[in-house]
Design a protein around this nucleic acid. Sequence first.
RNA 1: GGAACGGUGGCAGAGCGGACAAAUGCAGCCGCCUUGAAAGCGGCCGGCCCACAAGGCCCGGGGGUUCGAAUCCCUCCCGUUCCGCCA
Length: 436
Amino acid sequence: MIDVRLLRANPAEVRAALARRGDPELDQVVLRAQAADDRLREITARRDQIRARVNELSREVGRLRREGDVEAAEALQGESRELGSEESVLAAEHDSMAADLRELLLVIPNIPNADVPDGVSDADNPVIAGPYLPEGGEEGFAEHQRVPHWEIGAQLGILDNERATKIAASMFTMQRGAGATLARALCQYALDSNADAFEEVRPPTLVSTATLTSTGQLPKFADDAYAIERDDLWCIPTAEVPLTSIHAGEILDQAELPLRFMAYSPCYRREAGSAGRDTRGMLRSHEFDKVEILALSTPEQAPVLLTEMIGRVERMISSLGLHHRAIEICTGDLGQSHHRSVDIEVYAPGCGQWLEVSSVSWFSDYQARRADIRYRPLDDEGRPQKGTALVHTLNGSALAVPRVWAAILETHRQADGSVAVPEVLRPYMRGIERIG
RNA sequence: GGAACGGUGGCAGAGCGGACAAAUGCAGCCGCCUUGAAAGCGGCCGGCCCACAAGGCCCGGGGGUUCGAAUCCCUCCCGUUCCGCCA
């Protein structure tokens, strides 16, 4: 959520900043939120005045009763009772107005960072690092590398999506033999590579509605998530969801920040808006594995962490012998909760596509406000300051398995049709150097 | 799933219809004392809404009874223990 107080104090600024996202309907929502906030404060003030009077009368009644003046007490009780019914009307009005305001605020996206470039769609996302390609660029790959991974997977018997579909439904995948081992090895490698700075967590992968709302998936994107209605739980689309909420509702000490977590988890996505796209191979599926890295920080630490996390992802991709580039997401393509976001894409020579394998994002205090994650700020001398402040959250995929799996098959395919296993993965694959 | 008992501030733990945002202890902060520290002494010491103050709200969530609820009633959630079931 954005800060209502900011909207109150600088409505023009907030509207201008949000206008950069290019959503023509958004401004109306912002204006309605502003009106709801005005109305809410007015009702609150009136309600509180009545409550103050009722409290005063009740104290007086107590005193009179102790003194034995029943008649006077009963007179005041009558007055108080009348005020009470007036109060309950205003209280109901207050509650429904507060709910209205919250509903509006929950669908207003985050304010983009000033450094985010303007643009209307993904076509406007500038490349900010790379592309790191072999001699000759995208054309510089050998003929034996120009085979799509679904064909390689079939040739080597390590990808069996036909049977995955039989067992589950379309858009599910199944890796077998060395293909399954490779998928697992990628996860373990990613976890081990980030263990120097991140605490490993094995979180729940089914979460409550409140948890899925905190990170921004609900209420707006309910169609994208698998719901288990009978138990009022949701399948997580990413480990970002449970990891962000680890400290929901808590007040942290500034000295503990930044807190860093990483988790392997399966990720479940209905892909409601992308039916029929990327239906072959491993490029898009309803269930996949991912290692996520995440941090809770002060506002000052956040931009530094963003840079660090991007660097970690780039090094990981390079260490696997893959070719990548980094893309800065423009205002028109920025996700709802994102304050600033950078995608890492890997070139897959077999299908001839740049594949998004990671998205590293800074959420400012947007998720923290929804999840109510605060800290006690320290002053320059290290003494606690008055009050609390919201943390900033950041996260990124350290490694998303399917697309990296695909890029490895295509990039490391040899002239004889086998696939060379990147050196760093071999210890995680019982020493296997070559598939096929 | 059944039964019993619980859920109060950072932690521990009192309060069980009125003067309670809530005793007390620990932790924390400021000062005194000290060469420094500990101990001791004095003070401060939860959060939220509201521009501040005034005022209001918060004793697991929601609802009810009452002039008045941390305290009584209902309901849901969570925890502990025992039983059942189970990897």
